[in-house]
Design a binder for these strands. Structure first.
Lengths: 332, 332
DNA sequence: GACCTTGTTGCAACCGATTGCAAAATGGGT
DNA sequence: ACCCATTTTGCAATCGGTTGCAACAAGGTC
């Protein structure tokens, strides 16, 4: 069926080792045999079986890429960046879509069966314990968009969600909003809770503010819209920090149902600065999360772990900044 | 480092074959040894190395999933469905992000090196020859969202793009638009051309219509917006068939810049019916493409090819239908 | 020409599994 | 207790590579 080392060796009239060595970086082969082998290989259309070699080398160059955010448009950008960054460095992403039905433990077992060299957990909602399960199973792991503080056992790359909560609160207050609200992602998401705590910490510094908070059922358009509709049925706040851009866009849609103008009647600030937030029709004021740097750093870390598996776990936290667009009233 | 067959065999006091057999469906093992082995395996935390076994069985359960549409939100839905469908059947997606920089031939070689059992090319823009390259290399391939007519050599799953073009034209004409336009994806995309031909074929049946057409530089918001802005600078048509929902949404944004109301001043009909098109603020009239069925059928075909590699190539074409929302004027 | 150094080569064992085959164990029938 | 048919089991070869080691060749020096 497919051409193997042996076939090439036979045609070139050399040993199998010679063929193997011409295809491995920095091995000792003379120019003469190398060219014989290359000629034979080209003739037969040979290319080495990466999986067979992984047996002896212990490296597959497969990287598990796990996520559970397949409904937030930001993740298209995330996948694009991750897959590019990995393949630029000769690594191959093996995707795991973690749905509600799939047992998390299974994905650990599965990825071990495929001998992935490392795993990237790309999720702001999974708990640190999930990433730790890979660590415990002896698989190098990077938790991208993870919570840094409480998991010193794995590498974490992302932002300081607590600080982002504070930043959003400061921004709302600086624009004179006196009745402010947090409309966060699901309660069981670490990012939603961290942003909440930062937000509350900041607003509590100021005595006579009205503050409310609520959590949507997910990081999705529908969840954001539903939650904002519920809020509008009561007495809404003047300005909201929505814990994510897609939530914000859902909330904006609810405002529009009620004939309310964002930035004028009610203020909204999001988090992520995804592509869509820049669209003229959306024009969302938001906190920019440096996705590209985060992903590059994650893949950097993966590479460094491959070199040194004993590497001490590290958190790489990137600063965020407010991007001013049209959904908050101007500063006074 | 990791536990192997041998370790389990030693602990259980049986041969390596016995261990292998307890982990392979339908092999002959007595209940007694099976339980001994399972106990030992559990104690050591053993799970078989899928790649090692692939060496002898010739099956990796890895499926290459190739795409180049990482900027169209519809592809988040596509990835979600594909990854779920594959992993539900015990198959693992190995992603290839085909960018402008990556050499297509490299991806063929790469996927062969990883001995993927099959490849899914998920793209409406890649030419049939791309999918055929895998076929020629002896790798089973399904071209999802591909063009069916001219490539009888590979399996194709998707829709009849020519018919969709006709359908869109009929819909515009039925609503009394007399000056109609096609705003398509990039000229080198098979889907853009097929939709164009169907559209033109239908409108040419009617004598005194004004017809125009143009092609955006890609299937993206920005491209759709830019092209519609260009059209609005001249004399735009009354109703447009935009060859894709994200193009349509870009076009809608351009209309809004000019203070034009979709469905009232200018009509727009898209294609795909992606999640976003249902958002109240978008409310796009569009042609529904049954993504879920298409993906299920694609994975079905993959499974069938694994059973019978000599399977005769087949096209599975799914019907589309118009979803009426708010961006076309009502039928008279 | 003898000797040493350096660079190339092939042999054979091994990576972690599967599997055909023959030997051994089991169980049923008498 | 014996015989025979049927499972169950282990041996050993194999999948497609890599790699330590020892043998060998080439080239330089005296």
């Amino acid at each position: 069926m497919s051409v193997t080392l042996k076939d090439v060796a036979a045609l070139a009239g050399v040993s199998r080792s010679a063929v193997s060595r011409t295809f491995t970086e920095g091995a000792s082969v003379s120019a003469k045999t190398r060219s014989k082998v290359e000629k034979a290989a080209a003739e037969l259309g040979y290319s080495p079986n990466a999986l067979a070699s992984s047996l002896t080398t212990g490296r597959t160059k497969l990287i598990g890429l796990i996520s559970n955010n397949f409904h937030n448009p930001i993740f298209l950008e995330v996948f694009d960046q991750f897959t590019r960054a990995l393949q630029e460095r000769g690594l191959r992403p093996l995707i795991v879509n973690l749905t509600d039905e799939t047992e998390p433990a299974n994905s650990v077992r599965m990825l071990r069966q495929y001998s992935v060299d490392a795993v990237i957990v790309a999720s702001s909602t999974l708990p640190p314990s999930f990433a730790k399960a890979f660590h415990d199973a002896g698989v190098p792991v990077v938790h991208t968009f993870g919570r840094s503080a409480t998991s010193p056992e794995v590498h974490v790359v992302g932002i300081d969600n607590v600080e982002c909560g504070r930043m959003a609160a400061r921004e709302l207050l600086a624009r004179g909003y006196r009745h402010v609200g947090y409309l966060g992602g699901p309660k069981d998401a670490t990012s939603a809770m961290d942003r909440y705590h930062g937000f509350m910490e900041e607003v509590e510094k100021h005595p006579n503010l009205k503050v409310s908070h609520s959590f949507a059922t997910g990081y999705s358009f529908e969840a954001g819209r539903a939650e904002m509709l519920r809020l509008l049925a009561g007495t809404p706040a003047e300005g909201y920090f929505c814990g994510d851009d897609i939530l914000s866009i859902g909330a904006l849609s609810a405002l529009s149902d009620h004939g309310l103008q964002p930035g004028k009647d009610i203020g909204i600030i999001g988090l992520n600065d995804m592509e869509m937030s820049r669209w003229e029709s959306v024009d969302l004021t938001t906190i920019h999360q440096p996705i590209k740097q985060i992903i590059t750093a994650s893949v950097d870390l993966v590479e460094e772990m491959l070199k040194d598996p004993e590497r001490y776990p590290e958190a790489r936290i990137f600063p965020c900044r407010v991007i001013e667009r049209g959904t908050l009233r101007p500063r006074p």
